[in-house]
Design a protein around this nucleic acid. Structure first.
Length: 284
DNA sequence: TTAAATGTTTAAAT
DNA sequence: CATTTAAACATTTA
């Protein structure tokens, strides 16, 4: 699920825990999930961790480990000190088995660090991947502006959205070349925040609505990060309670539930082939 | 049994 | 040719 807030939260956790550690060993359990030669990463020290849209780049000097978790990817960090505290750091769409023993049947790659801690890349559907990328080649094509950077304003959002003027606004928001890191969850939430019907064609939006949408995107992403990502990127795991998925959402996954603002029943429709949730009273 | 699920790319249809 | 829709990827759960 990892959209921007989830990946950002994973980044913050990893920056705190694995920078300065050396990768001792990389075990590839699913060849499809690892692209490149793992030898070039083994023995290297983690220097820097960055996020680009939904991608995570772990810099090892000459090379980077570039992660894309796609739909069901998870990163689970279990360290020696972490284990003693009965704690584990996780990021990704929550499932029962991510609280259990590692590795498990969905573990695709295991990174072992110099201090004994391990990072597990789990991915049920195997859409996600880890790639070795030379440092000079770490540019990702077709990425729009990072919404949390101050250069991002409503005029830029408007200009980029207008690349697909006849499309519903909710669909265009998910286009990574329009704005980086917004996926299905936050696109739904952003439209709710902006009080805009997700079906509205981009060409029919007023400047006022573009402004509201700009703020709505920011609010949804910031709320997501404030909640540790919609998936709870770190988790205290003595007995394995369930991560609470999206308790804070206004509309995503809440069809047939009353709107948290006006009690109108949330509707679910299909837009661009994706589940789309909205309140017909709040969003017009 | 069918449908849907956090994402992206590619092919097919309009 | 540009734009839009569907399919594909793989697996599980409702």
């Amino acid at each position: 699920m990892p959209e921007l807030p989830e990946v950002e939260t994973i980044k913050l956790v990893l920056q705190r825990r694995i920078i300065g550690l050396t990768i001792k060993k990389i075990q590839i359990l699913s060849p499809k999930s690892f692209i490149g030669n793992p030898n070039s990463a083994e023995g290297q020290k983690v220097l820097k961790i960055e996020r680009f849209a939904k991608l995570l780049a772990v810099n090892l000097g000459e090379v980077n480990l570039l992660f894309h978790l796609k739909m069901t990817g998870q990163l689970i960090l279990q360290g020696e000190s972490v284990k003693r505290e009965g704690e584990r750091y996780i990021g990704g769409h929550p499932t029962e088995d991510m609280m259990g023993k590692m590795p498990n049947s969905h573990t695709r790659v295991i990174f072992s660090f110099s201090d004994g801690s391990k990072l597990y890349f789990n991915d049920q559907r195997r859409f996600g991947w880890v790639k070795i990328i030379d440092n000079g080649k770490l540019t990702i094509d077709n990425l729009g502006p990072e919404p949390l950077e101050k250069e991002f304003n409503w005029q830029i959002l408007k200009k980029n959205l207008l690349k697909h003027k006849s499309q519903p606004v909710k669909v265009v928001l998910m286009d990574q070349s329009v704005v980086s890191g917004v996926g299905n969850i936050y696109s739904n939430e952003a439209c709710f925040n902006a009080k805009i019907d997700p079906r509205t064609k981009v060409s029919n939006l007023s400047n006022l609505q573009f402004k509201r949408l700009h703020l709505g995107v920011l609010k949804s992403l910031r709320d997501g990060i404030a909640h540790g990502g919609s998936t709870r990127a770190h988790f205290r795991d003595p007995e394995g309670h369930k991560g609470y998925f999206l308790d804070y959402a206004y509309v995503y996954g809440l069809d047939k539930h009353p709107c948290k603002v006006c009690k109108t029943i949330i509707k679910k429709i299909q837009l661009g082939g994706r589940g789309t949730y909205y309140c017909s009273n709040c969003q017009k």
